[in-house]
């Protein structure tokens, strides 16, 4: 059995158990700070983890982190950005002004102090700071790519001393890139076929199970 402490409660679980499952056995109600339960995609299970003999305390997603003997774990609530970085869908479409909008909606981005806190905090190992700096310098597509696998756990929001909300900036870059530039030719053609009436569905046509 592996013994650890989670939010002040002792847990004793078999090896290979994840922290989230261990928390459940320790009597911690799993009603918050948990969602997908192991896939590591919802970002709800933020935690600080100190391993035995390590002075360092690291961030982790508790549903994907296996328990270790002597581990200390504290769950972290979701920290919302200090102020919402508000924009609407109409802000997304014009590629010529995308950079202006990044600067207007995320004015903090140019103030990155290069502390690397976001990089260290990211449980997915993304190059968050680089993404922020790319967006702040106008490379929207470059910034978007950095955040491909971001799970919006908001740990970088909590970590950033300049209140940049790096992941939300990254998502803004992603949304700008997609809404502003993605125009798939095959989709456009199919939409035209449908609106022009050239392609329809005969709902009574199919009667057999096998094609």
């Amino acid at each position: 059995m592996v013994n650890l402490t989670i939010d002040g409660r002792p847990a004793s679980v078999p090896e290979g158990t994840t922290i989230v499952l261990a928390a459940a056995t320790a009597g911690i109600a799993l009603t918050t700070n948990v969602g997908c339960m192991g896939q590591g995609v919802c970002g709800a299970c933020r935690a600080l983890v100190r391993r035995t003999g390590e002075p360092e305390v690291r961030t982790a997603l508790a549903c994907e982190t296996p328990v270790e003997d002597g581990m200390q774990v504290s769950f972290l609530d979701r920290v919302a950005p200090r102020r919402p970085h508000a924009y609407s869908e109409t802000d997304l479409v014009d590629g010529w002004t995308a950079y202006e909008r990044v600067l207007a909606v995320f004015p903090e981005a140019v103030r990155c102090r290069h502390c690397s806190g976001c990089d260290r905090a990211c449980p997915k190992g993304l190059e968050v700071q680089k993404g922020v700096n790319l967006a702040a310098s106008g490379d929207i597509a470059g910034a978007a790519a950095v955040f491909d696998l971001c799970v919006m756990c908001n740990l970088c929001v909590a970590a950033c001393p300049e209140h940049i909300a790096p992941n939300h900036l990254g998502l803004f870059a992603r949304r700008l890139a997609a809404a502003g530039t993605q125009r798939p030719a095959d989709l456009i053609r199919r939409l035209h076929e449908i609106t022009s009436g050239a392609m329809t569905i005969d709902a009574d046509a199919c009667t057999d199970k096998q094609p």
């Binding site: 869908e89 949304r175 798939p184 095959d186 989709l187």
Partner: peptide, 27 residues
């Protein structure tokens, strides 16, 4: 279907394009 995918793109969702194709190529 097609209008739904367009709606998603308009809200900023990215879809993979065919290898070697730009954003106005084939999905």
């Amino acid at each position: 279907g097609p209008a739904s995918v367009r709606w998603l793109i308009e809200r900023g969702m990215t879809f993979d394009m065919e290898e070697g194709q730009g954003p106005s190529g084939r999905l």
